[in-house]
Design a protein around this nucleic acid. Structure first.
Lengths: 174, 174
DNA sequence: TTGGAAAGTCAATAAGGCTGACTTAAACAG
DNA sequence: CTGTTTAAGTCAGCCTTATTGACTTTCCAA
């Protein structure tokens, strides 16, 4: 590290490479860690008083986002084994938060939907999380938010990118 | 949602509130989820071939960052119970990656330091993670990175903010 | 000298992952 | 029609990381 070779910070132009120093990167890693912990803390608090955990929240979130998706699509998004998802899904089905409709085109498939109470819980969990993100967005301003999104999308791996894109598409056909 | 009341996007000025719509917020939540998963995947891959997990990585990271910190400080940062940390710390001590020196001022304290091999593993894990962050930073550019950091810091809770600030201070006195 | 703090430990429990092996039902290919 | 593949579900067993509760040892400080 030849410190003498680092140029003084003059502006925000592309000639400023200080955002790539090891200290900056480490700072970003820690900020990511602490922010993500806060980000998951709010719904966790709601969940712990019920018999659910973060795994249930994730399932509810993606079923809400893609109503009618089948089990293997959900497995793909969550990146867990079917044995692991099964325990979670079974609880949600038993408690009447999720409904599994037999596929019209392919009767082997189970199309997952939230019930009324499932949607209600999902809204509560989601709103707790959205409140924090909304507050952070408001405090940071539109330009910072745009930068936030740009960095996050650049950080995803290929599988994540694809899934992220798919999430913004049309909902699953029955 | 009265769609007619939404103003057209004209610029990036503070009058543009589209970054606060529910769709934008939900998109941010999902981007955060997928990016964080990628962010932890690289070191996880290294760890799984050893007998270690993510918990060991976190301990190594913060001991590297604050050499000489004591056990209760580490407990505070990690937000786990001492019983939980103990198992992890015991393994790292037994394997000679971490050294616990008795405090000079207060002999009850154990000042934690990485050994040579501990520092080496920490560098390997950290470098895998830094490589991804560095690549994302480079692709996104300085302005986006500044925005990324602004939003992350706004998203932390009070405890996280304090710990994040402390992390940037001087190292622990023996 | 005594109270309390820092650390460490034992035991029991739980959530949430995993692998492997297997079944059932349905679609599909020949 | 038959045999193979696919989607889903299940059982059993295991691992990691976390929890609570109870307790000990060491040692600082009033």
């Amino acid at each position: 590290m030849k410190e003498g070779s680092i140029k003084p910070v003059t502006g925000q132009g592309p000639e400023n490479l200080l955002f790539l120093t090891d200290e900056q990167i480490r700072g970003g890693i820690e900020a990511f860690f602490f922010a993500y912990r806060a980000f998951t803390a709010d719904p966790d608090e709601i969940l712990e008083r019920m018999d659910y955990g973060r795994a249930h929240h994730r399932a509810l979130h993606f079923i809400a986002r893609k109503p009618g998706l089948n089990v293997s699509a959900l497995l793909d998004i969550l990146g867990v084994t079917k044995q692991s998802l099964n325990r979670v899904l079974r609880a949600l089905l038993a408690d009447g938060l999720v409904e599994a409709r037999i596929g019209k085109r392919d009767r082997r498939e189970r199309r997952l939907h939230l019930t009324e109470s499932g949607a209600e819980l999902e809204r509560r969990l989601s709103e707790a999380q959205r409140a924090r993100v909304r507050a952070a967005y408001r405090a940071a301003g539109p330009q910072a938010v745009a930068g936030f999104r740009t960095v996050l999308e650049a950080m995803m791996d290929d599988a994540g990118s694809r899934q992220f894109r798919d999430m913004r598409g049309a909902e699953a056909a029955e």
